Simulated assay, not measured.
Amino acid sequence: MFSARRLDGGAGVRREKVGRLVDYLRECSARGRAVDLGQAAFVTSFNLLSATFFSVDLIEFESDATQQLKETIEGVTKILGTPNVADFFPILKRLDPQRIKKRSEFYFGRLLGVLGGIIDGRMESRSMETKNDLLAALLHLMDGSEYDLTYKDIQHLFLDLFVGGSDSTQCIVEWAMTELLANPEKMSNAKNELRSVIGEKNQVEESDISRLPYLQALIKETLRLHIPGPFLVPRRAVREVEIGGYVIPQHSQIFVNAWAIGRDSSIWPNPTSFEPKRFLNNNIGFKGQDFELIPFGSGRRMCPGLPLADRMLSLMLGSMLHNFEWVMEGGVRPDTTEEFGMALHKAVPLKAIPLYCF
C-alpha cells in the first residue's frame, strides 16, 4: 500500500483531497470566517485514507459526525498515552481507578463500530460491485485458504491505520501553522519560495516538492520541536541487553523519548526556537537514518506510512501557504501549549482566518 508504485498511482486522489481543502478555505475566506486548522487537516487526511481504503469519503468539513469522529480518535490517543497505575499494581485492575479501561472500551468500541459497518456493507454488496482498494484486497485474502486472516484482523488493521495516519498528520499541520503564525518572517520565507518556484497562480504538485527546500526544512523543524508521537510506539526487549552501563531485562517495555532528543541542547543549538534554516545546510532527514531526528521511528518497526505522510504534509502545507495569507482572529499570538499523550496535541486548537491571494 505504501510502495512507491502504489503511491505514484494515488497522486490523483491526493490532488483531489487537497483541492477540496483549498476550496473549503477559499469559501471561509469569502465569508471572513476563522478556520479550525486542526479539524480541516484531520478531514483532509482522514478522507484521503478512507478513499484509499474504501473508495469513499467518510466525513465532511464542519459536520457533527466529523467532530465526533475526531474526538473519538483523540480519545483513543489520549488513553494510549496515559500512565495506568493498574499496570504497576495489578491488584487494582478490577477497580480501574482511573477509568482507563472503561473509557478505552467506549472509544475503541465506537471506532470499531464505524469500521465494522463499512466492512459489513461491502461484504453484502460484493456481488454487485467491484472496487480496487485495500478493503477489496483484504476481503479477497480472507476468502482464500492461504492466509489465516479474520474479520477482526481486518477491522483492527484499519483501526491502527486510521488512528496512526489521520491524527499524526493533523498534529503536524496544526503545529507547523502555529509556529509560522507565531513567526511571520518564517512564513514569509516559505511563501516567497513557493512563489518563486511555482508561480503565483499555479497549484502545488508533488513534482514540485523536491524544489522546495525551505518548505521541507520547516516540516523537519516542526517534527523536531513538536514530534507527533513523543515516545514513539512502545518496543519490547526480545533478550536481556546492556546499553550504556544499564541492564535492560528481557521482555521489558521500552519507550524512546524522541521529544527529549529533539530538544537536546547538546545536539540542537537554541533547541526551543523554531528555526527551519537549521536544516538547510545539512542532510539530516526523518527517515530513520539520523538518530537525532526520528519522528517516525527507525529500523524494521518504523512507521510504514512515512512515504505517504511525507507527500501529504508537503502538499497540504504548501497549498495552505501558497494560496492564502493567514491572520489570527483578534490579532492574538497563537498558543503553543502542548498536551501530552500518545500524540502531541495542542492544548488550545488553532483558529485563523484565511485571506485568499489570487
Rank of each mutant, 00 (worst) to 15 (best):
H140E: 15
S266V: 00
G244N: 12
M312I: 12
V35K: 05
S265P: 15
D23L: 11
V348S: 09
D208K: 05
F324K: 12
F54W: 01
R311K: 15
A217D: 00
L215S: 03
L7A: 09
P349S: 04
N183S: 14
D36K: 11
L315G: 08
V327S: 14
L141M: 13
F296Q: 05
A176D: 08
T222S: 12
L308G: 02
E325M: 03
S29Q: 07
S319D: 10
Q203G: 04
L138S: 01
G9E: 14
L355A: 00
L313E: 12
F291G: 08
M302E: 08
G38H: 08
Y356S: 15
I248P: 07
G32M: 06
H156Q: 14
A4H: 10
A190N: 10
T150D: 07
G9A: 13
G9R: 11
I79P: 06
Q155V: 04
L317T: 07
H251K: 15
K201C: 13
R211K: 15
Q67E: 04
P83K: 08
L317E: 11
I91N: 07
K191M: 14
E174I: 13
P83D: 06
S55I: 01
M302Y: 02
I267M: 07
I261W: 01
P276Q: 09
L25R: 05
F88S: 08
